[in-house]
């Protein structure tokens, strides 16, 4: 049952959703939390070349930082875990890129830019078509290739 409504020690201040909005950036696996806005694969490709390619390679094939595409069969020795080969949820791309990328300037992208990059990365991994426009409705519906690849053990 819910706990009581008495303040026990009275430390801290109440906070509203409005006050929190700039911090409340998490996206649930089912898409709850995705903001308004949208972006296309083509837009994403341009942003990627400008802001991401220096570390991840022109097409996400990897550079000084992680390979973001391909990866191969996970059962083979040389396999690499990427969005295409490993990630179970498409919503994670939006959440992570928005909060952490580009490395050095995190939380600098607009929501439209993050949607575009997400569309581009999904397309570069042959998960969505080149004409895809990504938004809060479309993203949670993307079926990830390795969606069934995880066993939740919680131990």
């Amino acid at each position: 049952a819910d706990s009581g409504h008495e303040k026990i020690l009275g430390l801290g201040q109440p906070v509203t959703g409005q006050q929190l909005s700039a911090w409340d950036i998490d996206i649930a696996a089912n898409g709850v939390g995705l903001p308004a806005g949208s972006g296309s694969v083509g837009q994403g490709k341009l942003i990627f070349q400008a802001k991401c390619a220096s570390c991840h390679g022109a097409e996400g094939q990897g550079g000084p930082a992680n390979k973001l595409t391909g990866g191969g069969n996970l059962n083979t020795a040389g396999a690499v875990k990427t969005i295409g080969s490993y990630w179970p949820f498409a919503t994670t791309i939006f959440d992570y890129v928005r909060r952490a990328m580009p490395y050095g300037a995190p939380q600098s992208l607009s929501n439209d830019e993050v949607y575009a990059l997400t569309a581009y990365l999904l397309n570069a991994n042959q998960i969505v078509d080149a004409d895809t426009v990504m938004d809060a409705k479309a993203l949670p519906l993307v079926q990830m290739p390795n969606r069934a690849g995880f066993v939740r053990v919680e131990r």
């Binding site: 006050q19 929190l20 700039a22 911090w23 995190p106 939380q107």
Partner: peptide, 13 residues
């Protein structure tokens, strides 16, 4: 307005 801003240290390496 009393809304939380993202801290400057969160927006860089």
């Amino acid at each position: 307005q009393g809304n939380l801003l993202v801290a400057p240290w969160t927006k860089k390496t």
